[in-house]
């Protein structure tokens, strides 16, 4: 029983990571290394919260959060795709900008709580049939609607990237924009669209924190989760399905320390707190030792595309 409640909590802790990771996967698949995940999450968190308080409508709140995350991504896209600025620097600036934006917007929201009607909307619901499966049901299918949205997004993204023509185009744009351009794919448009949709997903991840996880406004509610998402993309090898597993795993690592303290273990708490980062480093080492294609990022990642330099 204790184990089940731990795994269920791990899924919840992994959900904001999942959205941010999926967003970043989509962005990176089209060749944009956007390190502004943390910033876009914060923008989504504050706007989603603000809209939720104003309208009391959960759908509008989610749309607002996606809009804000997308807006952050548009700034990034304009700088890196149109103006071809350095992607790393732009992403880092976006993080700082997003934090400032959220603090500014959030000044009047401090101490406010998500309205009751929205809390009810985001309450855990047991899915018919699936929720009754022993163990699995209690862990995965008695969660709030936001969590289910995460599952669906991951699966849809997986199908999109690996089983549709558009998905193929995205991957080509990310791997070799020159080839994509030669075959008539609009590189800039693909980059823009996936960047913005990716940003919107990051915004949703932030909104999960402010609307469901901690349903009250507090500054810097993401507390570094955007950076874990960036690491998760590598851990998941740019694969949405693996991101689903990775997010639950990292969510579990994030909270396992509290549960372990109940037992008199001889391991230092600080070692347990380091686990997510140690795991990421191990994945990086394994990937580079095996030189596995699967564990390498898109080849065109981080490089601005100039048609003339083909």
């Amino acid at each position: 029983m204790a184990l089940i409640s731990f795994f269920a909590a791990a899924v919840v802790a992994g959900t904001p990571l999942l959205f941010a990771t999926l967003g970043e996967i989509l962005t990176e698949k089209s060749g944009n290394l956007n390190l502004g995940v943390e910033g876009m999450m914060l923008m989504g968190a504050v706007v989603g919260f603000q809209v939720g308080i104003m309208t009391q409508n959960p759908y509008l709140a989610l749309i607002g959060a996606m809009g804000a995350g997308g807006l952050g991504a548009i700034i990034y896209g304009f700088l890196t795709i149109t103006l071809r600025a350095n992607q790393v620097v732009t992403g880092l600036s976006l993080t700082i900008f997003g934090a400032g934006f959220a603090n500014y917007m959030g000044q009047k929201l401090i101490g406010q709580v998500v309205p009751e009607s929205m809390k009810i909307f985001f309450r855990p619901v047991s899915l018919p049939v699936l929720g009754d499966i022993p163990y699995i049901g209690a862990i995965f299918f008695r969660q709030d609607p936001f969590v289910y949205l995460g599952y669906i997004t991951a699966i849809v993204l997986g199908i999109y990237l690996y089983h549709t023509q558009y998905g193929l185009h995205v991957r080509v744009v990310g791997e070799n924009p020159g080839a994509a351009d030669a075959s008539g794919v609009s590189v800039s448009m693909y980059k823009y669209i996936h960047c913005v949709v990716g940003g919107a997903l990051c915004g949703l991840g932030g909104a999960y924190l402010s609307l469901v996880y901690v349903p009250a406004w507090q500054e810097n509610v993401t507390a570094g989760r955007g950076w874990i998402a960036v690491a998760l993309v590598i851990f998941a090898a740019w694969n949405p399905y693996k991101a689903l597993i990775g997010a639950c795993f990292f969510g579990g690592l994030d909270i396992v320390g509290f549960r372990l303290q109940a037992f008199d273990l001889k391991i230092s708490q600080y070692i347990i707190n380091m686990l997510p980062y140690i795991v990421t480093i191990c994945v990086l080492i394994i990937a580079s030792v095996r030189k596995s294609k699967e564990y390498g990022g898109p080849k065109g990642l981080g490089i601005p595309y100039f048609r003339e330099e083909r």
């Binding site: 204790a2 409640s5 731990f6 909590a9 802790a13 904001p16 924190l209 996880y213 901690v214 009250a216 507090q218 810097n220 509610v221 507390a223 989760r225 994030d254 909270i255 509290f258 549960r259 303290q261 109940a262 708490q269 600080y270 707190n273």
Partner: peptide, 23 residues
């Protein structure tokens, strides 16, 4: 029952520690 978070400021993590205690 005491639970350490090793952070002064992380709303989600602090909540998670409390949930572990409630469990």
């Amino acid at each position: 029952v005491v639970r350490w978070t090793h952070t002064w400021y992380d709303p989600a993590k602090e909540k998670e520690a409390a949930k572990a205690l409630l469990d």
